[in-house]
Amino acid sequence: MKPSVVSSPHVPRVNRVDRLMLQVLVALVPGIVAMIWFFGWGVLINITLAVSFAVAAEAAIMLARRRPPMVAIGDLSAVVTAVLFAISVPPTLPWWLTLLGMVFAIVLVKQLYGGMGYNPFNPAMAAYVFLLISYPVAMTTWLAPNMLAEHHLSFLESLRIILQGAPPTGLDWDAISSATPLDEMRGKLDMDMTIEQIRQSPLWGAFGGRGWEWVGNWFLLGGVYLLWRRIITWHIPVSMLLGLLVCAGIFWSIEPQTHPFPAFHLFSGAAILGAFFIATDPVTACTTKKGQLVFGATIGVLVYVIRSWGGYPDAVAFAVLLMNIAAPTIDYYTQPRVFGHGGERG
């Protein structure tokens, strides 16, 4: 249907999709800077590549659909998808995997469903999971944070690794990579080590993995900025982090030697990034406030469950995708009581 008369309201609109997206990108800056600091130039190179690929894919598909490409590119959603993807993958990911991921995210997950607003799954996370399942080694080879690395990769070395898919001659993976804190924790717990023993490891920082623990803080800062600018509401991030913390707290208080304490969960992996930037993607999350609480809390619980007993060490992407499926149903059952329909007393 196409309404013919221009109807009210006749005042300027206060929000715009591209401005919202821009705010999200701004909020990501502190976390990205922290990541570059800890993991080197690869982070920046990945972001640049991912954004270029995503925008190109978006333009190509819009042209193929005979629509003006700027309409889709202009809303900046592809850029946000690309950046979220790029900071979730290892900083040494070969370029062609980034390309594959972006084509998958933009073409299959987003545009084939009708484009922005119609995709049921979070494109960045869908691409991440797709690559993780197809290329598990490349997707889990992480660089050591700068204070632990034996060798600090220069910009050119990072570029070479990304373009060639292998460390330059004279360097091998062992010298530059290390297990992520979540991997480390899983591996050592499986070897029947106690948390106390694990914490002796040089990988261990104040309350999480060294380096890693601080990245989360900077993303948290960005998240608070988004809350302050009212780009997101508190419902999803708070309920998700609470879901994770409560689960972690319960198991930790029962058996502290085999279950890492809650702060470790909070500041490891993509928990904070996920809570503020990924689970809050409006298109794929719940829209009712009650629904958002259910949505967020369930993601938090799922993250804990998958981290503790699942096949992959980090779980945010899986948990978010699982809940993307459930979102419409949750929305349906959590509709607010309409004004004048009884129920609530003044």
Partner: peptide
């Protein structure tokens, strides 16, 4: 300036802002 012509509408991104401000508590 007071009543700029509307930009082309984009797809709904399900951000829920409309529901937040609806005085009738609709979706």
């Amino acid at each position: 300036e007071e009543s700029p012509s509307a930009d082309a509408a984009l797809a709904c991104i399900r951000c829920g802002r409309c529901a937040e401000v609806c005085p009738a508590k609709l979706l």
